[in-house]
Amino acid sequence: MAITKPKAKMSQDADAFISGAPDAEAKPRGVRKGNKRQISLTITPALLQRVDELAAELGQSRAAIINMAIYRAVEHGLIKE
């Protein structure tokens, strides 16, 4: 039985060449809807009910309330109570 060398892996030059291709970019996750991206969100039923109640009280959509909350958290940080 003859001893053989394992096949060489693709060289770094080849990796760099392939990753430089225009279609090699990773696509962003989510479905594009105008200037926004649609995502999936899992939320507890109790919290969802509170979001819906706040949305109805303010005359906004559920999505608008969630967007506003995320925007405020990102811009101003989260406050511990």
Rank of each mutant, 00 (worst) to 15 (best):
S61P: 05
D52I: 00
R32T: 08
A21N: 08
A21K: 08
N67R: 15
R37G: 07
A8I: 14
E57F: 02
E25W: 08
I79K: 15
R32Q: 12
R32P: 07
I18K: 08
A55C: 00
A63L: 15
I79E: 15
A63D: 14
A56F: 00
I65K: 04
E25M: 09
Q12C: 01
L41Y: 06
N67L: 03
T42A: 09
A73R: 14
A46L: 01
A46D: 05
D23E: 11
V51E: 00
Q49E: 04
G34L: 09
N35A: 11
P28E: 00
R37N: 10
D15L: 09
T4V: 14
T4W: 11
H76L: 09
S40A: 05
Y71K: 15
I43T: 01
K27D: 10
S40P: 02
L78M: 09
M10V: 01
Q38V: 07
R32G: 03
I3W: 10
A16Q: 06
P22T: 04
E57P: 02
H76G: 06
K5N: 10
A16N: 07
G34C: 08
D13T: 15
E53V: 00
L41E: 07
I70V: 14
Q60M: 09
I3A: 07
R62T: 03
A56N: 07
Q12E: 08
L48Y: 04
A24H: 07
E25L: 08
I79V: 15
K27A: 11
Q12H: 04
A14L: 11
I18D: 09
A26S: 13
Q60V: 03
T42P: 01
Q12V: 06
G34P: 09
E25K: 12
A16K: 04
I65E: 07
P45D: 01
L58A: 10
A2Y: 11
P28R: 01
V74M: 13
Q60T: 06
E81K: 13
S19E: 10
A26F: 12
T4G: 15
T44E: 07
V74G: 10
H76W: 06
D13G: 14
G20H: 06
A2Q: 15
P45S: 02
K9I: 00
A8Y: 12
F17E: 15
E75W: 01
A69Y: 05
N67Y: 03
A8R: 15
N35I: 05
Y71A: 14
I39P: 01
D52T: 01
V31Q: 11
S40D: 06
Y71R: 15
Q38S: 07
V31A: 12
I79G: 13
D13Y: 10
A63R: 13
R29I: 02
I66P: 03
I65R: 03
R29K: 07
I3C: 08
A69W: 05
R62I: 00
P28M: 02
I70H: 11
P6D: 14
I65Y: 04
E75V: 05
Q38F: 00
L48P: 02
Q38M: 06
M68L: 13
R37Q: 09
K5Y: 12
G34Y: 10
M10C: 01
T42D: 09
A2F: 12
K7N: 10
N67G: 08
R50P: 02
I18L: 12
R50D: 04
